[in-house]
Structures are given as structure tokens and as C-alpha cells.
Design a protein around this nucleic acid. Structure first.
Length: 219
DNA sequence: ACCCAGGGTCATA
DNA sequence: TATGACCATGGG
């Protein structure tokens, strides 16, 4: 069923070409900036960082807090995210850079990322999948919403359990994990929002909701 | 005027 | 361990 849903989303939306960034470090920065934030606002912040020549770990750690916060202003939570960016960049530098981290075991790397201030499970997994190209399935609010709505998992399922649900059901394929998560976000943005609009949904027949009619076991 | 967005931390009970 | 407050901009 999980593979069939992937096929349907892919057939309907096509390839999403994620992560929308050019350099690996930009992916890592974007993963922090996009926390609970629209990607369009993140792009402005990334552009602003670029204009300010604040595009390397060294430049970010040496940038005054006030200035860094100003550069990423458009991405929201700018004081919080400025501190998180600095924490991540100083960690990255003390680890010896990306090339060193590339040699690390995926499980160890994930645990170390989670130990950095401001990096939680989703941000860590974004980094692991899209920047380190490890076969880790990214979970987000859309994933939980879509897959509980089609009745495959409980609505309150926790992050790790939902992640295992995907990773146990699918081949560990980085390219497919990349596309699947991107498709879930795309689908979530277009159709499956907080209030169901299943009339135009590709997963219409699977969803507990129907257009204008509630499912029998749903409030 | 509302609600939401590609979360995470910290303080409380 | 489990909720709730908090962070904050920009678009619909």
C-alpha cells in the first residue's frame, strides 16, 4: 500500500527535484531555516545571507548575532534560528567538516546531529537524506496527517514509530526516499490541509473523508 | 482579522 | 511522559 501511494503521487505530480538548493552546506542551513516556516520565506533568507557573504560555516560563526538574525529575518524566529545556525556551524567545524562526517556511520551521525542545539528528528533527517544522502525517511506534519487520514497509522503516532513504518516497508533507496518525502510535502500543500478537501485529492478513494461527508468513525 | 507554514526547546505537573 | 508557551515573518 505504501508503495502504491508513492506511485500514485509520483504519477500525478511528477519528480519534485528536491532539495531545492545547489550546495550541500546550503541544504544544511535551509534545513534549519525551514523549521515550521514556508520555504518561500527561507529562500529570501538564503539570498540575503548570500548578499551578505555569509555562506560558509566560518562566516556564520563569526557573524555578529544581531547581523545574522537580520539576514535571516524573513524566515521567522530569527533570534532562535540565528543561535541554532551558530550552534550547528561551530559543531560542523569542530567535527572537521563535511568530508569527515561523510565517513561516519548513519546511526552515529544521526545521534550526533540530534545532540546539537536546535536540531530535532526532522531537521536531522532532512540533513541525513538530502545533504548526506543516507537512506533515512523524513517524517513531518504532512506525513502524519496524510497517512493517518488514509487509515494506515494512528493520528498520534510518534516520529520514530512512523519512520520505522516507512523504512520497514520500503527498500532503503535514497533517490526514492528523496522523492517520496518531497511528494508528500507537495501533496500536503496542494490538497491535504487541516480541513479535508478530498474532492480533488489523488488519494480520494483511500481517505476516510469524502467531499462534504465525514467518515463514520471520525469526529 | 484570522490561520498556517517542510519544528524544537524549555518550563511545568 | 506529556502537554503548553514561546519563538516571528509573509502569504492566503
Amino acid at each position: 500500500m505504501i508503495k502504491q501511494i508513492y506511485q500514485r503521487l509520483f504519477d500525478h505530480y511528477g519528480p519534485q527535484h528536491w532539495w531545492p538548493a545547489q550546495e550541500r552546506f546550503e541544504i544544511l542551513v535551509g534545513a534549519i531555516l525551514t523549521q515550521n516556516t514556508n520555504w518561500q520565506n527561507v529562500e529570501r533568507a538564503l539570498h540575503s545571507l548570500s548578499l551578505a557573504s555569509c555562506t560558509t560555516p566560518e562566516q556564520i560563526v563569526s557573524c555578529p548575532d544581531q547581523d545574522l538574525a537580520a539576514h535571516i529575518r524573513s524566515s521567522g524566529y530569527f533570534n532562535v534560528k540565528a543561535r541554532r545556525l551558530k550552534a550547528f556551524c561551530s559543531w560542523l567545524l569542530e567535527q572537521g567538516g563535511l568530508a569527515v562526517l561523510d565517513t561516519r556511520d548513519t546511526g552515529d551521525l544521526r545521534a550526533e546531529l540530534l545532540s546539537v542545539h536546535g536540531i530535532g528528528p526532522e531537521t536531522a533527517d532532512d540533513m541525513l537524506l538530502y545533504a548526506f544522502e543516507r537512506p533515512v525517511f523524513v517524517i513531518d506534519a504532512y506525513t502524519r496527517r496524510i497517512f493517518s487520514r488514509v487509515g494506515l497509522v494512528e493520528e498520534k503516532i510518534n516520529y520514530e514509530d512512523l519512520q520505522c513504518f516507512f523504512e520497514d516497508s520500503l527498500d532503503a533507496d535514497v533517490g526514492m526516499f528523496n522523492e517520496y518525502h518531497a511528494l508528500i510535502v507537495r501533496h500536503g500543500k496542494e490538497v491535504c490541509r487541516t480541513s479535508p478537501r478530498c474532492d480533488t485529492c489523488v488519494l480520494k478513494d483511500l481517505c476516510a473523508f469524502r467531499a462534504g461527508v465525514e467518515g463514520p468513525d471520525r469526529p
